[in-house]
Amino acid sequence: MNIAVCVKQIPDPAAPGRLDPNTFNLVREGKLVMDDSDSYGVEMALQLVDRAGGGEVTLISMAPNGETSGLRTALAMGAAKAVLVSDPALGGSDALSTAKVLAAAILRNPFDMVITATESTDGYTGTVPVQIAEILGLPAVSFAKKVTLDGNKAMIERQSESGYDEVACELPAVVSVTAGVVEPRYPSFKGIMAAKSKPIETLSLSDLGLSADQVGAAGAREAIVSLRKAEARQAGQIIEDDGEAFAKIIEYLEQLKVV
């Protein structure tokens, strides 16, 4: 069982982010870290490979500046190796370009499944997983909250608004997993030391047979045309408890048809 996991390296969410005033894209300077939402996919892949009794987890990532520290985190968790596509021409890539690059990188190694997060924490388009599946000509199962293997099939519980769907899917397939689906392990010191010597294959666009005009700002078909601040949430209603507050709260909940 070989699984490719797409891992995005993003600016540290703990530090305040900044948008480029011209392109409205997030400024990606300095150190990047593994997107927390990808840690669930890494953990799920490690568990599936472990249960299958063999195989390995390969990380797939794309970053304009050759950054590897986020990948080292996932390697320390137990992934075997990583493929990093890094090329100055990738700056300003839209979701589809990203999917093209990741799909080409995924094809470098044999795989039975591709796992992604449902969306990244910095971009939030949520479209890349299905685009990868389309490019690779594979079935896509999004919002998986549980994945088990049954021979050459994946049995997947797919989160829906009202509950979950049970889906069976032939492999290979692209599966996007929701946060909280598994509990990502903390890397051990041994894992961190081992990650130091695990291979990260760094590729340029030409290594993947892609040209600069297909990707990055040059190839983007999607542009952010304007930007405005999210509306501040209205202040809630404050009920002072004069001994009868419960009645007002029940009345309010009844209005919402919650009770």
Binding site: R72, T73, A76, Y186, P187, F189, I192, M193, K196
Partner: peptide, 13 residues
């Protein structure tokens, strides 16, 4: 670098 990474893991924990 590995000790610094480890420090961050324990801090997160």
């Amino acid at each position: 670098q590995e000790q610094e990474s480890f420090r961050k893991v324990v801090a997160d924990f």
